[in-house]
């Protein structure tokens, strides 16, 4: 391909201006508002207005209320969110890797069709799909009956309102975010490298872990991030498939904003979620050694 020549001059800036202004006004500046709101005096209300008092205590209060585990079984919404999101990401990685591998290496002329089929179900509304899971995993549904019949679940055992249903919902809803980047990096791998490892007497497992897996790491990193980040902030699955015992941090933030009208606490929690995610992402990307991603 011919080397693309990048033109200098004013046009480039002019093309950027509308989009940059929009993102600055409605993405960047809102963060400033969020930080400000998280430091408001919690004594105010939406109706009487808030006073800016640099009330850093809001963060401490939010962490104490939602960030610390209450008991061994009740981790509190913040830790629970990261636990659910982490476990879902691992399950998505396993399922997504198998699917992406099958499409990239085994599908032959059905490659494009299978790729289309990966995305197709996700054009149906997120909420409608999740409600369908509510029916499938419901107390009279097929899954519970089978599990009861083989005595994995007791006679009055259920899946809805348990972590299993919430995690299953998250795994389902975010699977394409894992499959597509994995496919993109698996598809780029030169088959000859894998064949070469076989010629050099590596068995298929060694070949996979020494050749395929390292070469697919960029896809693994971006896939896990694209799954983990929205999963940690999601509250639709927890609300529709879980109960109050499965509340995630998103449920809490949403309630504080829309029902409790406690803006300072909601803003502080949002900030905490964002900071923890950024910290985890940076740490993870460093460890995985794929810094060119960011």
């Amino acid at each position: 391909m011919a080397e693309m020549t990048r033109r200098r001059g004013l046009t480039g800036y002019l093309l950027l201006v509308p989009g940059v202004v929009w993102l600055a006004l409605f993405f960047v500046i809102p963060f400033y508002s969020l930080v400000a709101a998280s430091l408001f005096d919690p004594g105010g209300s939406v109706f009487s207005g808030y006073e800016m008092t640099w009330h850093v205590q809001n963060y401490w209060d939010a962490l104490k209320e939602y960030g610390k585990p209450n008991s061994w079984s009740d981790w509190g919404p913040l830790l629970r969110s990261f636990w659910y999101a982490g476990l879902s990401t691992v399950i998505c990685l396993v399922l997504g890797y198998v699917l992406a591998y099958a499409i990239a290496f085994k599908a032959g002329r059905w490659k494009n069709l299978m790729l289309v089929l990966v995305i197709a179900p996700f054009f149906t509304s997120f909420l409608v799909r999740t409600l369908a899971w509510k029916l499938i995993l419901g107390d009279d549904g097929p899954v519970v009956s089978v599990l009861q019949a083989v005595h994995i679940l007791g006679a009055d055992g259920r899946l809805l309102a348990t972590p299993v249903a919430v995690i299953a919902g998250i795994v389902y809803n975010f699977l394409p975010f894992m499959v597509l980047p994995l496919y993109a990096s698996l598809d780029k791998i030169d088959h000859r490298l894998i064949e070469a490892s076989g010629d050099l007497y590596a068995n298929p497992f060694v070949g996979f872990f020494k050749v395929t897996w390292p070469l697919s790491l960029p896809g693994v990193v971006s896939g896990t991030l694209l799954t983990f980040i929205p999963a940690a902030g999601d509250y639709i699955n927890a609300q529709l498939l879980g109960s109050t015992n499965q509340r995630m941090i998103g449920n809490v933030i949403q309630n504080l904003f829309t029902d409790a009208n406690d803006y300072p606490a909601a803003a502080a929690l949002s900030m905490i979620l964002m900071v923890v995610i950024i910290a985890m992402v940076l740490f993870y990307v460093r460890r995985a050694g794929t810094e060119e991603l960011l």
Binding site: F27, L34, I229, G233, I249, I253, F257, Y263
Partner: peptide, 11 residues
């Protein structure tokens, strides 16, 4: 995360 974008825009 959407919840963070949504809440900052609301703020």
């Amino acid at each position: 995360p959407e919840i963070v974008m949504g809440s900052s825009l609301l703020a």
